[in-house]
Design a protein around this nucleic acid. Structure first.
Lengths: 258, 258
DNA sequence: CGGGTGTTTCGGTCCCGCCCGAAGTGTTGC
DNA sequence: GCAACACTTCGGGCGGGACCGAAACACCCG
C-alpha cells in the first residue's frame, strides 16, 4: 500500500448523492448559482453551501463571485472527463439512478454533456460521421480522416489539436441513454457551439436538455455529407462570427434568454 | 435531476479508504486472496470480507473459488480504466496518499498498471516510440503509424484492434509518479506480456513493483528502433510461443514463482 | 440608510456504515 | 476423524458527516 494518488478522498467527494447531483448538473457546462445547485441537489441551501465549499476546496469546482450571486462551474474538461468515465462505468455495471425510460424523453433526444451534444441526435451524427468516412475508429479510439478534415474545416471547425493542450481533438464518449458512442473532445465542443450559434438547437433554461429543430437536425446531419449544395443557397440569417477564438465556449453560452 | 447513471453509488464504493486500497492493489492485474486483500486494505478479515462482498455485488470485482481460497480480481479493463481516470484526476488535483518521493523508489522505476507497464521505464519507452514515429499523438490521443505497425508486428505484437472488442489498441495513460504519459490499451498489455515472457523484467511477488534488468531495459527501448540487428544475433533463449491468443494475459501471469 | 434577497456560519440532531471480536461453515492435511 | 486454516456471518459499539433551523453576513435597490 501507500503508493499512488489518494483515490478514496476524491471518490468520497463524488460519493454523496447531493454532491453527485450538483456535479451532474454542472456537467451541462453552464455555471450555476448556489441556489440553483441547491435545487438540483435536492437539499437545503445551508447544506448545499457546505458541499460546494468542499468541492471548491478540493479543486473540482471553481467559483466566480458576481454581485450577490456566486456562480459555480466545473474546474475543467479533465474533471468532466473523469465524471464521464464514472458515468460510463456506472451505466455499464448497471447502476441507474432511476428508470431512465419515460422520465424525461427530451433528455434522451438531445442534451448537453459538459460542452458537447449527447443523446439520440448526437449518436446519429456520430454514426453518420463514421459511415461517411470522416471519422475513423482508429487505434486510440477516434481519428479525423483527411476527408473529414477538409469538410469540417470548411465550416470553420477546428481540425487540429492545439499544441499546448492535453485535450484530444475528438474522443468517443459513451452515451448512457443510447448505450452507444457520441462525439466529445474539442471538435465535439465546437460542433455544439456551432449548432447553438446557428440556431439549429436551443438550450432549455435550467436543464441539460436541448431542443433540436427538424431543420437543425437536418443541418447537423448534413455535416456528414460531402458539402451540401442547399447550404450554399441558404445563407444562414444568423450572425456568422462564430468560433474565431477557441475559448468562445463560455462566451457563446452566457447569452441568457430567460 | 433524475437523469443519467447513478454515479454516487459507484463513487461511494471507491470512496472508502479500505475499498480503495483493495482496488488499488488489484490494479496490479493479479488476483488476490481475501487475506491478501485484508493486508492491503489494512483492516481485519471480517471487515474486508464485507467490503469484498460489496465490490462483487456491484460488479466491479469478480471472485473465483479455488479450494479454501477465494481469488478476487478486477472485473475487466473498463473498471481499471475508470480507476485510472480517478487516479489521474486525483493526482492532478493534488490528492496524494503519501509523499510519493522516497517511499518506494522501485515503484517509481517500474510497476504494473493493471496489465501494462508504468513508471520511469514505461514513460521512456513511450517517448521513444513517439520520437521514432511509431506512435503519433493523433486526434483521439494515439495512433499506431504504418511504420510502427510493421516494426511491432515483427515482434508478434498485435497491431489491429480486435473487431469484437471495445478496448482501444493503444491509449495514453497518465503516469502519476512521472506526471507524463505511458502506453496502455491492448498494445501496452501485449508489450508487458512480452517483456515478462522474455525475461526483460520480473514481477515482485506481492507488489505492483517490477524489476527491470539493464539488458531488459535496453531490449525494451529497442522496440522503438528500426529493427535492431543484435536482436537477430541473440536468438532469445526463452520459449517463443507468446501472445498467440489475445487472452493470454492471465495465462502468462499466473506462473507463480513464489 | 433601511427592506429584500442570496449565501454562509453556527449549533445540534440523527442516521448510516465502518469496524472488530466471537462464533459458524467449508476445505485441507495428518 | 480431528486439528488447522481460510473465509464468512452475526452482534454491538462508535464516529464521522449529512442535514436542517435560526441567525449572521453581503449585496442590490429604492
Amino acid at each position: 500500500m501507500a503508493d499512488g494518488p489518494d483515490i478514496s478522498r476524491l471518490a468520497a467527494l463524488l460519493g454523496d448523492p447531493a454532491r453527485a447531483n450538483i456535479l451532474t448538473a454542472l456537467m451541462a457546462g453552464r455555471a450555476l448559482t448556489a441556489g440553483e445547485c441547491a435545487a438540483e441537489a435536492g437539499v437545503s441551501a445551508p447544506t448545499t453551501s457546505g458541499h460546494l465549499a468542499q468541492l471548491v476546496a478540493s479543486g473540482l469546482v471553481l467559483v466566480s463571485i458576481q454581485g450577490r450571486h456566486r456562480y459555480y462551474r466545473l474546474a475543467g474538461p479533465e474533471v468532466a472527463e473523469a465524471i464521464e468515465a464514472m458515468m460510463g462505468l456506472a451505466a455499464r455495471v448497471g447502476l441507474n439512478r432511476t428508470r431512465l425510460g419515460p422520465r424525461d424523453p427530451s433528455l434522451r433526444a438531445a442534451r448537453m454533456c459538459y460542452d458537447h451534444l449527447a443523446g439520440a441526435v448526437a449518436t446519429e451524427l456520430y454514426d453518420a460521421l463514421i459511415t461517411a468516412g470522416f471519422l475513423a475508429p482508429a487505434p486510440a479510439g477516434l481519428t479525423l480522416t483527411p476527408l473529414g478534415r477538409e469538410r469540417l474545416a470548411a465550416e470553420g471547425l477546428p481540425v487540429d489539436t492545439p499544441a499546448n493542450s492535453r485535450r484530444p481533438l475528438c474522443r468517443a464518449c459513451l452515451d448512457w441513454s443510447e448505450r452507444r458512442d457520441h462525439l466529445a473532445g474539442a471538435l465535439g465542443a465546437a460542433i455544439a457551439a456551432l449548432a447553438l450559434e446557428r440556431g439549429w438547437c436551443q438550450r432549455t433554461p435550467s436543464s441539460r436538455a436541448v431542443t433540436v429543430t427538424t431543420e437543425g437536425r437536418r443541418q447537423l446531419l448534413a455535416l456528414a455529407e460531402p458539402r451540401s449544395a442547399q447550404q450554399l443557397v441558404q445563407p444562414a440569417p444568423q450572425t456568422r462570427h462564430l468560433a474565431h477564438t477557441a475559448g468562445s465556449k463560455q462566451g457563446a453560452c452566457n447569452v441568457r434568454r430567460s
